[in-house]
């Protein structure tokens, strides 16, 4: 099957997964797609999540590289730091600007393993879990592009996007007049979304801390918007 183009996601995830299983894939990718997707009835309260965050050399998945990945497993009650993971990976596209943002330097990257070498472990950590991101166009597109470049295969999965949940509830709470006037929503950035739930601000940003911040944000959204009984698939993107 052909590669799905940039920013295009399947209409039917079940169908997409069963198609991928037919393809001759990398072993780790094959295992990944063999994990069944969540049951349509499965609720948020009964789901194992994994928050995913990446740091990159820039904002364009087609031009820039991933330089680090953070994964934090959690459920609606607890975030398990003991099982969290963090990688810095090698890249040739580090720019002074990106170093300013994430503080990962040429020296760090020089000693780091390649993304290819850690991909199997990343896939293993994601499989069978519901992936959670804050702004899906970064994490999912970068992962997709990286795998497509490395082995010309699709690497895609349904995500829960805490930014999308935030936008949805902010929009719902807008007055009719505000909506009519197409008034802008308050900031949806991770830091500001967290502030609305009185979550603390973190100082030292990296992929791991932001994955943790995303996990905490989803917990807060679940508690505040009473989402535990909701089917996970209702929040899929």
């Amino acid at each position: 099957m052909a590669l799905l183009p940039y920013q295009v996601i399947p209409n039917d995830w079940d169908e997409f997964y069963s198609e991928q299983v037919q393809e001759s894939l990398l072993e780790s990718l094959d295992t990944f797609y063999h994990q069944p997707l969540l049951d349509p009835q499965q609720t948020i309260g009964a789901t194992d999540f994994v928050a995913l965050d990446i740091e990159t050399t820039g904002l364009n998945a087609q031009q820039d590289d991933i330089v680090s990945i953070g994964l934090v497993p959690f459920d609606h009650q607890r975030i398990y730091l003991a099982k969290a993971k963090h990688w810095v990976v090698s890249s040739h596209r580090l720019t002074p600007e990106s170093v300013m943002v994430h503080g990962i330097t040429h020296t760090d990257v020089a000693q780091a393993p390649s993304l290819k070498s850690v991909l199997p472990e990343i896939m293993e950590s994601l499989q069978g879990k519901q992936v959670v991101v804050h702004y899906r166009y970064m994490e999912r597109e970068f992962m997709r592009t990286a795998v497509a470049e490395l082995c010309q295969q699709n690497f895609l999965f349904p995500v829960i996007d805490t930014l999308e949940i935030e936008a949805r509830y902010l929009r719902e709470n807008q007055t009719l007049m505000a909506r009519f006037m197409n008034k802008q929503l308050p900031s949806l950035r991770l830091l500001y979304a967290r502030e609305r739930y009185h979550l603390p601000a973190y100082e030292n940003h990296n992929a791991l801390v932001d994955a943790l911040a995303t996990a905490e944000l989803l917990q807060a959204q679940i508690a505040n918007h009473q989402l535990t009984k909701k089917p996970v698939r209702a929040l899929w993107y």
Partner: peptide
Amino acid sequence: MCGQIEVSYFQAQS
């Protein structure tokens, strides 16, 4: 110790 921490969010009044 911090590596073993579990984090939980509680809404006000819960």
